[in-house]
Write a protein that binds this DNA or RNA. Structure first.
Lengths: 342, 342
DNA sequence: GTTAGCACTCCAGCATGGTGAGTGCTAACA
DNA sequence: TGTTAGCACTCACCATGCTGGAGTGCTAAC
């Protein structure tokens, strides 16, 4: 559809704009590309490219800037993939190594690293698995009046909580609760344990109501809609370094949006496509980020999608670099999570 | 030192400025205070207050704004303390209830809540207690090849990890490891378990090397130096809502500073005074925040300072409200931590 | 001690005009 | 037919100058 020369010019414009954030004119391009074509010719080509929808003009007599369609074409057809170097890989691994202890830290650290390496906002949603299957509950004594309740699921600890009593805790009481609860619920999906079943037990366990309540709370929390997914956000500061966000209002509107957990989860979940997804500018359904692009990937654990990580920044972002970084991170993080378990 | 009328005027100016962020003139004050004094008189008083250092003039023919000294006097002598209402307390408790499961979540949630209620940036540093005392290790079976290792300390779970084996796990093996490890280390401070002791066990536990290694890793991680303090940050967005941060450069410099973990820890640790500390504007040692104030409090667990929480914002902040909020949060959080244990 | 009046200051906002980068179009050229 | 030079035109940007308003300091009268 585009002849070779148009492609070259489009590529030159986009890459220059990504680097400088300034609208770019025919003369500059003529100088930068070492093809021997005059500025006037380039002007004609640029006019064509604009008619085709690949470029835009902020106003007459300004240079051209790429449109969403232009970026899309660039990402799909023109862009040279940039891998990440061994040095960068080593650095990332080192960062993880130094700062992660448990799963939630892996998440937190992931967005930190991702935002640092891409110089854009990083986010991720992780599913707290409400579909997880309850296996058993176990009580570990702490001291006379305290014990730890650990709820174990198919894939590890679902939750734990310290139980405190005003009088001495009787180990046998705890054991009895555990026995009854385990007999009743073992093997069920947490989300499927019905209120009737719970109520049925409640009378049996009247003397241990406090303990049983704690257990119920855990179940309820695991199921709670709002908590079934957790959003991690990193590097919001990076936005401020981008010239397109010199305007405080704009930054604020984006940051406020990023704070809205639910909205962000929706955005990341919109597409069910597997693999790396790139959403550019106007392709975004949500109008607040029509001048932003999102690169996202998912990570899996046991063949189930466990979450997504994404980079959000101005449409003018280093797609090649970001894509390869996020790909690497998604894979590496999946490994890490497996190691730490969920 | 200041007569009654001067105090009233100073208070009126400061409170108006806190509300509007605009320099304020004699006429406005005359109108706002319902004392019957003319603008001219107030003008004279204001000139006095400026000479005394309580007020400043951005430029001739602008109104006055409070100086750091002015705020200090306001906070120490003029301000009416504003408690937080039962409704707010209930709301805060509800927030915690809904979203916290484990200690690190309490921290994260604390800065979130604190920034929301104060409309400023909230931060906290928490000491990860390497001095915790090891009680016992326990293994909970998951399936044929996996088990959860739970390391229990005096105050709750120190760490947990999923152990995976390529061949079937023998429950007795695990039990044996637990027995030996517990016998050797129970009651010791994690940081004091020496390499010699570990090595001594290593030979005994040769057949279960993999499991034992996992356990050692947990110990090592608990001790790791770099992790001994953690910084949590919340509500950086709030800055953008303040008119004094309409300038992106300023926001950026502050946000970059906030990202520097070490620096922030130093700032919060600078003073060893117990109780709530307020540092106003120029009183800050660090020049980057000379136009900011910090209100901080510490929280304790078992009579040891475990961390500090703070609110950072423009000097023009609602001191009364923020102080009482942070006081409440510090106390309540200490309770929570105790409940969840460290 | 308080107040009214007045001259003065300075910022913010607006209109004005010049400059430069960039465009589109036309006509000439290969 | 594609390429190029030339030229008129457009528009953001900047510096300049002007004006109104808010606020001050000072002085003189109450």
């Amino acid at each position: 559809m585009l002849d070779e020369r148009k492609k070259l010019i489009l590529q030159a414009i986009i890459e220059d704009f990504i680097a400088t954030a300034e609208p770019i004119g025919s003369r500059t391009i003529a100088r930068k590309m070492n093809i021997n074509i005059s500025a006037a010719t380039i002007r004609n080509e640029m006019a064509d490219l604009e008619h085709l929808g690949f470029l835009e003009q902020p106003h007459t007599s300004a240079g051209r800037i790429p449109s969403s369609k232009g970026y899309r074409f660039y990402v799909d057809c023109l862009m040279a993939p940039i891998g990440i170097s061994d040095k960068e890989v080593a650095l990332i691994k080192k960062w993880y190594d130094e700062r992660t202890r448990q799963v939630s830290e892996v998440f937190q650290e992931t967005v930190r690293i991702l935002s640092h390496t891409t110089h854009n906002v990083a986010l991720m949603v992780a599913r707290k698995d409400a579909k997880d299957i309850f296996k058993y509950v176990e009580f570990l004594p702490l001291d006379a009046r305290r014990a730890i309740m650990i709820v174990v699921g198919k894939n590890g600890i679902l939750d734990n909580k310290i139980i405190e009593s005003s009088n001495d805790i009787n180990v046998d009481d705890l054991r009895r609760v555990a026995l009854i609860v385990n007999a009743a619920f073992a093997g069920k999906r947490v989300s499927e344990i019905s209120i009737e079943e719970v109520n049925a037990l409640q009378s049996t366990l009247l003397p241990d109501a406090a303990v049983f309540d704690s257990f119920l709370n855990v179940l309820r929390n695991t199921n709670k809609k709002g908590l079934s997914e957790q959003l991690f956000l990193g590097g919001a500061t990076q936005l401020l370094n981008q010239p397109e966000f010199r305007d405080v209002e704009r930054v604020r509107s984006i940051l406020n949006m990023l704070d809205e957990q639910k909205l962000m989860c929706d955005i990341l979940h919109r597409s069910d496509t597997v693999g790396t997804i790139i959403t550019i500018g106007h392709e975004n359904k949500f109008s607040g980020i029509r001048d932003c692009s999102i690169v996202q990937a998912e990570f899996r654990l046991d063949d189930e999608t466990t979450g997504k990580i994404a980079v959000l920044g101005p449409t003018r972002m280093h797609y090649g670099k970001i894509i390869s970084t996020i790909d690497f991170m998604a894979k590496y993080m999946a490994e890490l999570i497996k190691r730490y378990a969920a």
